[in-house]
Every structure is written in structure tokens, then in C-alpha cells.
């Protein structure tokens, strides 16, 4: 149980209700002003947030903390001062992300049990005006799709004609060429590594460059370097 002491938190105790943002005494308000470093704990983990009730998660403590930190950062920028320990913002952001995912988990569990669906915002993969696939996040409308003129004007669906065909051909060529170049670069890099580190761990090399054929690299004329003939 001693390890629990490290469950140090950036946040105030979640159980404290009625946290009053404006009731900070004036002597504490600028406590960290000019400090080089402000110590803080780690962010909340998902498994810890899963233990908390819905009303505990609905306290806006993290939001207030983030607003406070962002305001302090802006103020420090405006006054050309150092904003100490900027990683605090990221810790709060991480906690907020974890909190949201826990709430989503709970809602998805309810909806799956009751309706068999996730209850999340539906989406479908569709093609945009360039013929490229994208994730279309659906929206809720009062009228069906075929009656909705505005929607058709905004999301004019993809029409496969020779122009998109030409565009896609070039687009795919570009991505193919860049992948191919990367592969060649990796291949040459592996040859250099082989030349520089002859006693290298080959298993590690294979793991790091899985797309490179090492036998082929060793057959290259660049492999082996310069040496005087006997």
C-alpha cells in the first residue's frame, strides 16, 4: 500500500464539491508568480477514473484547472515572463481525455445493452470531390436526404469522371514514388550500417528495418568498402 502514496494528483480532491473558483484568498493567488518550477503530480489514469461515480466526474475541476493554466500561460507571454512547468497543461489534457473516454465507455455500455448499437455519432467511409476516401461524420437532419437540397449543394458527392481518374493516377504515383524512395533510402542506410558496424546484432537490424532484404544489401557493390587486394 505504500505505493499508493505516489498516486499523487495534479488535481484537487475529486470529492470536494462546490469548488469555488473566485474564493481563492488574495495571498495565495499569485503564489507561483515568478517561480522557476511548480511541482505537480501525474495525470489521472483511466482505471482510477473508472472507480468514480458519474457525479464525481461531473465537477469541471479539470476544466477550471486547464483554464487557470492557459490563462497563466497567456499572461506570462504578455508580460514576457517564464511560465513555469508548462507540462502541467499536458497532464490536465491527458486527464481530460481519459475522463471523456471513461464516460464514453459507460454510455456505449448502456446503449449496447439497450439497443445493440454504440449510441455514438454514426459515420461512414465515403469519397470526397477528389475521389479520396474519408470518414464522413454523419449529422442529424429533420428531413430525409433526397429532400435536402442544401445538403446536396454542400456535400456534392463524388463523381468518378476522367478528371478524378487523372488526379488519382498522379496522386497514387506520388505516394508510390515516395514509398519507393524511402525503401531505397532504407536499403542504402542498412548498407552503411553493415559497413560501419560489422559485429552488429542482425536480429535487431531486421527488426528495425523489416522491409530491407539484408542478403540483398550484402550483395550490393557498396557493401564491404575499400580494402587493399592481397
Amino acid at each position: 500500500m505504500a505505493n499508493l502514496r505516489v498516486m499523487c494528483k495534479l488535481l484537487k480532491n475529486l470529492n470536494i464539491s462546490n469548488v469555488k473558483a473566485h474564493s481563492i484568498p488574495s495571498d495565495r493567488r499569485y503564489k507561483n508568480w515568478g517561480a522557476q518550477e511548480v511541482k505537480s503530480g501525474r495525470s489521472w489514469k483511466k482505471e482510477e477514473l473508472r472507480l468514480k461515480s458519474n457525479s464525481d466526474l461531473h465537477k469541471y475541476v479539470l476544466l477550471k484547472e486547464r483554464n487557470m493554466l492557459l490563462t497563466m500561460e497567456e499572461e506570462a507571454k504578455a508580460q514576457i515572463q517564464l511560465f513555469p512547468s508548462p507540462e502541467r497543461i499536458d497532464k490536465v489534457e491527458d486527464s481530460m481525455e481519459n475522463l471523456e473516454s471513461v464516460i464514453r465507455e459507460r454510455n456505449v455500455a448502456y446503449h449496447k445493452l439497450e439497443t445493440g448499437r454504440t449510441g455514438e455519432r454514426p459515420y461512414k467511409m465515403s469519397k470526397n470531390a477528389f475521389g479520396l476516401r474519408y470518414r464522413h461524420e454523419m449529422s442529424e437532419y429533420t428531413m430525409p436526404k433526397h429532400m435536402n437540397k442544401d445538403w446536396y449543394e454542400e456535400f456534392r458527392s463524388y463523381k468518378h469522371d476522367r478528371y478524378t481518374e487523372q488526379f488519382l493516377l498522379k496522386y497514387r504515383e506520388k505516394s508510390y514514388v515516395s514509398k519507393r524512395r524511402q525503401q531505397i533510402r532504407d536499403f542504402n542506410h542498412v548498407i552503411h550500417l553493415l559497413n560501419r558496424f560489422p559485429d552488429m546484432d542482425m536480429q535487431a537490424l531486421k527488426e528495425q528495418y523489416p522491409n530491407v532484404d539484408i542478403e540483398k544489401a550484402k550483395a550490393s557493390r557498396k557493401y564491404g568498402g575499400h580494402f587493399a587486394p592481397k
Binding site: 505516489v6 499523487c8 494528483k9 484537487k12 470529492n15 505537480s40
Partner: peptide, 18 residues
């Protein structure tokens, strides 16, 4: 670990309110 003033206490973290 030395607890900081804004840290949540360990008991409060492990308390099950769900």
C-alpha cells in the same frame, strides 16, 4: 514521493464511488 498541495490524496483516488 512528497505530496504536493494540489495532489489528490491516495485514499481519495482508490475510493470507489461508482
Amino acid at each position: 514521493y512528497l505530496e504536493q498541495p494540489k495532489d489528490t490524496k491516495a485514499d481519495a483516488v482508490t475510493e470507489i464511488t461508482f
